[in-house]
C-alpha cells in the first residue's frame, strides 16, 4: 500500500513544520511542506494531499493575536479548497498556532486567549482523549507531550453543547493555562478537523520523554499521527 500524502502548511513564522514532517513520516505518511506563497504559485500539493497539517509556530509573529493573519490569508486565498478538502473527509489537524489559525478561520469552534499565567509556558502535560467524534483520537489511552504557547487558554461560550456534540476531543489531566473545562483540543462537528494546543509531534520516540532517563515513558504523541494517517489512507 502506498504511503498517504500529507501536506504541512506554513506561513511566515511557522516553526514546527519540520517536527510535524518527522512525526508524519514516522507514522507512515509521505510528508512535504508548503507555504501559502508556494500554494499561490501552484496549488496542486493541496489538491493532491490526503492529510493536512497546519503546523505550530508564530505565524506573522502573533501580531494582532495568534494565528489571525495566517487565518485571514488562508481563508481569503484557499478557503474554498480547504472546505472542499474537509468535505471530502480528508483529515486536517491544527497544532498550537495551527489550532489558533483554524479557530480564527472559522473551521473550529471557540477562541484561544492569553494563558491564565499571563505568559508563555513550556512544560509537559498529559492529554486524555475524550468520548468524541474525532477521528484523530480514537482508541488512544493517553498522550504525554509538551506545550509551548502564550495564547492557549481555550474559551467557548457553551462547553456543554460542544461536549454534547462530541467535539471535545482532548482534555488536560492537569490544566496548565486556564482553559475552559480543561479542554486541550476540539474537533469540528464531523470529527475530521482536530485542533490542539500541545505538541504531540515532539513526543514521537521514547527518548524524547523527560522521564525516559528515569525509566518511565509511554503515551507517545505519535499515536495521533498514526490515526490521522490511517484515516487519510482509508479515504
Amino acid at each position: 500500500m502506498s504511503r498517504p500524502r500529507a501536506l504541512v502548511l506554513q506561513a511566515p513564522g511557522t516553526n514546527r513544520d519540520h517536527d510535524a514532517v518527522f512525526a508524519l513520516e514516522l507514522a507512515g505518511a509521505d510528508a512535504r511542506i508548503a507555504s501559502l506563497l508556494d500554494l499561490a504559485d501552484d496549488d496542486s500539493p493541496l489538491l493532491d494531499a490526503q492529510l493536512l497539517v497546519v503546523a505550530g509556530g508564530f505565524s506573522h509573529a502573533d501580531a494582532l493575536g495568534a494565528g489571525r493573519m495566517f487565518a485571514l490569508s488562508l481563508e481569503h486565498r484557499f478557503g474554498d479548497r480547504v472546505r472542499a478538502f474537509v468535505a471530502a473527509g480528508k483529515p486536517v489537524i491544527g497544532i498550537c498556532n495551527g489550532f489558533q489559525t483554524l479557530v480564527r478561520a472559522g473551521l473550529l469552534p471557540g477562541a484561544l486567549g492569553h494563558n491564565a499565567s499571563g505568559g508563555f509556558q513550556c512544560e509537559w502535560v498529559t492529554l486524555e482523549p475524550q468520548q468524541s467524534v474525532c477521528v484523530w483520537t480514537q482508541d488512544i489511552e493517553s498522550i504525554d507531550c509538551p506545550i509551548a504557547h502564550g495564547e492557549g487558554r481555550y474559551v467557548h461560550p457553551d462547553v456543554a453543547a460542544l461536549e454534547a456534540a462530541g467535539q471535545v476531543a482532548l482534555r488536560y489531566r492537569r490544566n496548565p493555562n486556564g482553559s475552559a473545562s480543561d479542554i486541550a483540543g476540539v474537533c469540528d462537528p464531523t470529527g475530521i478537523v482536530l485542533g490542539l494546543m500541545p505538541h504531540p509531534e515532539n513526543h514521537v520516540i521514547a527518548r524524547q520523554h523527560p522521564h525516559h532517563v528515569r525509566g518511565a515513558g509511554g503515551g507517545l504523541g505519535l499515536q495521533l499521527f498514526q490515526r490521522g494517517v490511517e484515516r487519510a489512507g482509508a479515504v
Binding site: N15, R16, H18, D19, F22, G119, F120, Q121, C122, E123, P146, A148, H199, E201, N202, H203, V204, R207, Q208, P210, H212, V213
Partner: peptide, 15 residues
C-alpha cells in the same frame, strides 16, 4: 526557564 521553548525541534534529551 519555562518562558523559553526548550522542546522545539524535538532534540532536547536532557532539559
Amino acid at each position: 526557564i519555562r518562558r523559553y521553548d526548550h522542546e522545539i525541534r524535538g532534540t532536547t534529551v536532557v532539559r
